[in-house]
């Protein structure tokens, strides 16, 4: 998987938003985490879900290949089905590791900044909200 493809970061960065809050959206580090989240999402989805759909297609249209016996009564298709679970476990592991390393630290920092800005801006007591914490 390619980590530093710049394709994702360039597009929206050129925009010049006006509101104070929206400056976050155009910051490079925000664009980086956004790209990182999308990249892992798309890669992992194509591996696990795409892989599964290919497997279904193969089962439907190449039954003689997947019906080939492997060990004892285990056919190639059954092994591949068990392999799907292994692939899913690996995907989840890579996903959580990726999010922890590339996304969470920046997100935490940006969120803290956002909160500080908001506190600075609202000197007056917060207006009454209708729905709890939203």
């Amino acid at each position: 998987m390619q980590r530093h493809s710049s394709r994702h970061h360039e597009r929206p960065a050129g925009r010049t938003p006006s509101g104070a809050r929206n400056t976050v959206a155009s910051r490079p580090d925000f664009q980086v985490v956004r790209g990182a989240r999308r990249r892992i999402g798309v890669t992992a989805m194509s591996v696990s879900v795409g892989g599964f759909l290919l497997f279904v297609l193969a089962s439907l249209f190449l039954p003689e290949v997947l019906g080939r016996p492997l060990v004892g009564h285990v056919t190639l298709g059954l092994a591949a089905a068990a392999g799907q679970f292994v692939v899913m476990a690996l995907t989840v592991w890579r996903y959580t590791a990726h999010m922890k390393r590339r996304v969470d630290p920046t997100v935490d920092r940006l969120r803290a900044e956002l909160r500080r800005d908001a506190e600075r801006r609202t000197r007056t007591p917060r207006q009454e909200r209708r729905f709890g914490a939203w």
């Binding site: 989240r37 892992i40 999402g41 992992a44 989805m45 696990s48 879900v49 599964f52 497997f55 279904v56 089962s59 019906g67 056919t75 298709g77 059954l78 089905a81 799907q84 679970f85 899913m88 995907t91 989840v92 996903y95």
Partner: peptide
């Protein structure tokens, strides 16, 4: 047999869409 197992794998794979794409945003 086999085809039923395939359906069950699909049920598990469906949760991946939730986990990877939709849940957090």
């Amino acid at each position: 047999g086999y085809d039923g197992l395939l359906y069950l794998v699909g049920t598990t794979v469906a949760w991946m869409t939730v986990l990877l794409l939709i849940a957090e945003p």
